[in-house]
Amino acid sequence: MSERRTLDVSGLPPYEISNQAPLFWGQVLMCLIEGTLLCMLIATYFYLRLGIDVWPGPGVHPPGLTLSSWALIPLVASCVGSYLASEAAKKDSRSGMLLGMGLNLSLAVIFLVLRALDWNSLNFTWASDAHGSIVWTILFLHSYDIVADILMTAVLIVIVASGRYGPRQRIGVHVDSVLWYFLVGIWIPLYGVVYWAPRLIGASR
């Protein structure tokens, strides 16, 4: 090979634990996909609402406000844990990551318990009517995502606690937090739709 002009990149860092990492971009795109899916469900909710006189139908109680609203507190607070974990991942602080993820995990589990109690108090199922179908679908899909992320966090806690981790796993901790912010953020409009919409636009047209 003849002499070529060169660009030496050996001085660049060999990895990056920040929003510049490719994995972060991949995670954001995955959130975009899941967000599109959940937004379509919101559209579905209102489309179905338009076609019915009384929403929800006679004899169906709107989903309860008490537990679902209290549950927002641990849910939002759990983001603090995610933030601590992702900052600790950037600084490579093992104890910080464990503390952050542990906090996140405990609050997320509290949220999940409240969600389960609330869900259990519904007096309709997916097969009751169209309102039941869409509400159960929203709750199921969001809970599914929450459970999946909780399991992912648990696995990361095991990996970090074992000490068998490197930069790739630290990036994993960071993007796990990003996913959690998304799941918390998307729940706010979904909560509004599931719990407030029947009260605000539920009466007959």
Partner: peptide, 12 residues
């Protein structure tokens, strides 16, 4: 047995 597209139960 959901009713998203079943007009009898409010679907469309």
């Amino acid at each position: 047995g959901t009713h998203f597209v079943n007009p009898a139960e409010g679907g469309n």
